[in-house]
Simulated assay, not measured.
Amino acid sequence: MEHVTLKVEGMSCNHCVQSVEGALKNIGASGKVDLANGTVAVEFDAQKVTPEQIKEAITDQGYDIV
């Protein structure tokens, strides 16, 4: 399994957490949002999910990766 931590802007509440974590789950990755730090720790199988797909899943929810 691969791990990546992304800095994400625009997350501020539990709904944001559910949106991001749900979007990652839908593509086959697992994510843990840290609202205090504005980060998302993602674990994924590189054979099934690409970093680009992870970023797209997050930005499709309306958040910016910095």
Rank of each mutant, 00 (worst) to 15 (best):
V8Q: 06
G38L: 04
V17D: 04
Q61V: 08
K7L: 01
T59Y: 05
Q61K: 04
A46T: 14
K25I: 09
S12G: 09
N14I: 11
D60E: 09
I58P: 07
K32V: 12
T50F: 07
L35W: 00
G10F: 03
C13P: 07
D45L: 13
Q47M: 12
E52Q: 08
G28V: 07
Q47H: 15
V33P: 02
T5C: 13
V33H: 03
E56I: 13
V42W: 15
K25Y: 06
G31E: 03
T39A: 10
V42T: 12
I54S: 06
A41L: 15
V8F: 03
T39K: 04
A57N: 11
K48L: 09
G31W: 08
E52N: 06
E21W: 04
A29N: 07
T59L: 12
V17G: 00
D64Y: 07
S30L: 15
H15N: 09
T50R: 09
S12W: 12
D60I: 14
M1W: 01
L24F: 06
S19T: 13
E9W: 00
V40L: 02
D45F: 01
G22E: 06
S30V: 11
I58K: 10
K25T: 05
C16N: 10
G22A: 00
H3L: 14
N37P: 15
G28L: 11
V17Y: 00
Q61D: 08
Y63A: 02
T39N: 04
S19I: 11
H15T: 10
K25A: 11
Y63K: 03
L35D: 00
M11A: 08
V4K: 02
L24A: 10
K55P: 13
Q47P: 12
V4R: 11
L35I: 03
Q18H: 11
G28S: 01
I54A: 03
A46F: 13
Q18F: 05
P51T: 06
G28A: 13
L24C: 05
A41D: 14
A23D: 01
H15S: 14
G10I: 09
A41G: 05
G38I: 08
A57Y: 05
M1Q: 11
V17P: 00
A29M: 11
S12E: 10
V20S: 00
Y63G: 03
Q53M: 08
H3S: 14
A57P: 01
K55V: 15
E43N: 14
G28C: 07
F44T: 14
G38K: 11
V49D: 08
E21R: 05
S19K: 13
A29Y: 04
V66F: 13
V4P: 10
Q18S: 06
V42A: 08
P51K: 15
V49K: 06
Q47V: 09
E21F: 02
A57V: 08
N26K: 05
